[in-house]
């Protein structure tokens, strides 16, 4: 069942991606892109990355692609709607693409992932995965939320699975408010996690990028709106 589902998703993803490459009409390209990205979201779900999958659907399929389609509409005027590439270029790009694939795929497939994983585990590297997703499937959003605030619950769990279990039960979808709704939880667990986080430097919280990206988005939006608005208009407050 798993592999069947995977095969369907994988084929759909690759096929749609190929569709993007091969279609000459930009609207069709957008369609194939939506299909492809949607299927990637499906793959995410299969990988137990529910939150990422949801984000993929929301931001990519819901946001970015709509943005792109806006772009298509705004720039589509008359005869340039279909701007074809020359077959020669397609062939040339195809050759390079196949060469790239010929390098990438053998490389990634020949690596002994399981062996490497075992080597690392034997060498005493803590295994962070496993608990955070296998117990409650899709129970990642809360960990992600905490990590974005700079606290790594999963890393703490990894070394103390027995205590960690009780937290997973409380998982329900908190949306993307990033763990703001998590309230009822024992102080013991907190203390434990606290100890873990402060004594190991390995677990990195992602507070900084989470916050700094908001600044980045602000800057980028100001820039985009500057380019988009007509020159010398009386200014409105932006963003």
């Amino acid at each position: 069942m798993e592999s069947l589902l995977f095969t369907i998703y994988a084929l759909a993803t690759c096929g749609a991606a190929l569709g993007v490459v091969l279609s000459q009409n930009v609207a069709r390209m957008a369609f194939w892109l939506v299909v492809s990205l949607g299927c990637v979201a499906g793959l995410f779900f299969m990988l137990n990355a529910d939150f990422v999958g949801a984000t993929q659907l929301l931001i990519y399929v819901g946001g970015t692609v709509v943005l792109l389609i806006f772009g298509v509409m705004l720039t589509a005027s008359g005869p340039f709607n279909t701007i074809k590439s020359e077959p020669a270029e397609m062939i040339q790009a195809g050759v390079i693409g196949i060469a790239l694939l010929a390098i990438l795929i053998p490389t990634v497939t020949s690596v002994d992932w399981v062996g490497n994983r075992d080597t690392l585990s034997h060498a005493g590297v803590k295994s962070p995965s496993g608990e955070f997703n296998q117990q409650g499937e899709g129970g990642t959003s809360r960990h992600i939320g905490a990590a974005l605030l700079g606290v790594r619950v999963d890393q703490a769990d990894a070394s103390a699975p027995s205590e960690a279990h009780e937290h997973h039960e409380a998982d329900h979808d908190h949306g993307h408010e990033h763990a703001h709704g998590e309230e009822a939880h024992s102080h013991a667990a907190h203390d434990h996690a606290h100890a873990q986080v402060s004594e190991t430097n390995q677990a990195s919280g992602y507070l900084l990028p989470f916050e700094i990206i908001s600044v980045h988005l602000l800057v980028v939006l100001i820039g985009a709106s500057y380019l988009a608005r007509a020159k010398r208009r009386v200014e409105q407050p932006t963003s």
């Binding site: 605030l149 700079g150 009822a184 939880h185 606290h194």
Partner: peptide, 22 residues
């Protein structure tokens, strides 16, 4: 883990130092 816990947690790790540097 409640929000105050989380906040407490964040504030007692290296956040003050980080903010100072940053």
């Amino acid at each position: 883990m409640s929000v105050p816990d989380l906040l407490n947690h964040v504030l007692h790790t290296d956040l003050p130092r980080s903010v100072q540097i940053f």
